[in-house]
């Protein structure tokens, strides 16, 4: 029966691959398909947060900060509930990070506030003495690139069917509206104004009122949403 396989090394190799891959397929694929679904309550990033996420990536926050709380008591005591796969469902790419020079940020929105972030990013040692984090003062003057963030949101909405403009939790309301660029921008400006006021910095409030969102405001919106 297998004499035929012994005479055809190519099909023999294919057979070997199928046999070996089978165990992996039945153990990995069904679990992965289930675990990678969004957890209940997971929502895609709104425009301001997505812009903040791009700032986070642009300034390589993920080089020093992880976003993955492992299920160890020492970690959950400090950072909160351990991370679940489905929480990253709308992260493209996910920002687990590989190294903690600074603390984990996956649930930083639970225990830090807008004004704290503003103080900290302006001068880290003013709130955390001995911190080796550099100051990010340029974020207070750089203007957020909302166009790119909108392009990303629209792309994932159309290509990956990310549920923007949809009722996710079934309460009859649209959970994360996106709409046209102008609509999304107006919404982002409203959210940004609230955060700018929370930081108690007049320069940020004025910039937002003039229709420009400083990068720091978008970044704080993103960090506050990490829960």
């Amino acid at each position: 029966m297998f004499g035929w396989l012994e005479r055809n090394p190519f099909f023999f190799a294919v057979g070997v691959f199928v046999v070996i891959a089978f165990a992996g397929l039945i153990e990995i694929v069904p679990d992965f398909a289930q675990q990678s679904r969004p957890v209940a309550g997971a929502k895609p990033y709104d425009l301001l947060r997505l812009a903040g996420r791009q700032v986070y990536i642009k300034d390589s926050c993920n080089a020093c900060h992880s976003q993955l709380i492992r299920p160890f008591k020492i970690e959950t005591d400090r950072y909160g509930m351990y991370s679940l796969n489905g929480e990253y469902a709308y992260d493209r790419p996910f920002l687990w990070g590989s190294k903690r020079t600074g603390p984990d940020l996956h649930r930083v929105g639970n225990y830090r506030t807008s004004d704290w972030h503003a103080n900290h990013m302006w001068d880290p040692t003013s709130v955390v003495p001995g911190s080796i984090m550099p100051a990010y003062k340029h974020m207070f003057t750089n203007v957020t690139d909302l166009e790119t963030a909108y392009a990303e949101a629209l792309t994932v909405k159309k290509v990956f069917n990310v549920p923007y403009d949809k009722d996710i939790d079934g309460d009859g309301k649209i959970d994360v509206p996106l709409g046209s660029f102008e609509e999304a921008k107006q919404r982002a400006l409203q959210d940004a104004l609230k955060i700018a006021q929370e930081t108690k910095r007049k320069d940020l409030v004025e910039m937002v009122k003039a229709g420009k969102i400083p990068e720091i405001v978008a970044l704080i919106a993103y960090l506050n949403g990490l829960k």
Binding site: R112, V127, P129
Partner: peptide
């Protein structure tokens, strides 16, 4: 020191009104 000092300061004086 772990949970409160980032906002209230290591000496708990609130970091100059923050």
């Amino acid at each position: 020191l772990v949970q409160c000092s980032p906002c209230h300061g290591i000496d708990a004086t609130g970091i100059e009104g923050k």
